[in-house]
């Protein structure tokens, strides 16, 4: 038997809420929402961790402007380094940001290894940046983390909405709590998410032209409409703060 499974709960015992930021498609802003949510919460004096599980497309370090990769400190496991007030673990720490071509079983093993050896300190929130789609990572996180909740990101696109709908339906079938669905990069005339996800619709994040310029600079990131919207999401705040 694999002993690592039996310590995952113990490693996460000091963590309050664990929120996986997911969505059906690539490029819809999951990493942006995960990174800025962590940043906004840290800026509101919450104790926050960020775990980037998008192994093949890790990008939260780019958003947060982290380009100096070190192995985490070791003390009866690995201790997530604290960057911009966020306890942070990414595969890039171990790959030196090289391409990471992993197949399914390798992804499962890498997730399990990270969860078994990482000692998260006391946290109010652990935000997990997920890869696109329903895949090994999604199934492993649901299997391994009992109190996982999903924040689902979509965009004003029929294609994205159609794919995300299937993800939401699966999570509902599996009785996995959904914190809500956020429609990202919206413009005023289209509201697919509100119509498609009436029960769990949280709100919209407008397309923000300043975001690209702010990437890598946490002070500028906190001034973006995306960050301000996340900070002001009353439903999220009611549920999270």
């Amino acid at each position: 038997m694999d002993p690592r499974i039996n310590v995952v709960e113990k490693r996460l015992e000091k963590v309050g809420r664990i929120i996986a930021v997911a969505g059906g498609k690539g490029g819809i802003g999951k990493s942006t929402v995960a990174s800025l949510l962590a940043l906004v919460l840290a800026d509101s004096n919450q104790k926050v961790g960020l775990l980037d599980l998008d192994f093949t497309g890790a990008s939260t370090h780019i958003i947060l402007g982290i380009d100096n990769f070190h192995f985490p400190e070791e003390d009866e496991g690995i201790i997530p380094p604290k960057l911009h007030g966020i306890s942070y673990i990414t595969i890039a720490n171990f790959t030196q940001d090289h391409a990471t071509p992993l197949r399914g079983q390798d992804i499962t093993n890498a997730i399990l290894e990270l969860l078994a050896i990482t000692r998260w300190d006391e946290l109010d929130y652990l935000i997990i940046d997920m890869p696109p789609g329903i895949n090994d990572t999604t199934l492993d996180i649901i299997r391994l983390i009992n109190n996982i909740e999903f924040c689902v990101v979509t965009t004003p696109s029929k294609i994205t909405t159609g794919v995300v709908k299937k993800s939401v339906e699966l999570l509902e079938e599996l009785d996995v709590p959904i914190l809500g669905v956020i429609e990202n990069m919206t413009y005023p005339t289209i509201h697919y998410a509100k119509e498609t996800f009436p029960k769990c619709y949280l709100g919209t994040i407008p397309f923000d032209e300043t975001y690209e310029e702010a990437i890598g600079d946490t002070e500028k990131l906190l001034e973006t409409t995306i960050a301000k919207t996340l900070r002001n999401f009353t439903v999220i705040c009611d549920k999270m703060c």
Partner: peptide, 13 residues
């Protein structure tokens, strides 16, 4: 050291 921490990084190196 990378492989020591996360053996699957063997695919990187």
């Amino acid at each position: 050291e990378s492989i020591h921490f996360i053996p699957e990084t063997a695919h990187v190196f």
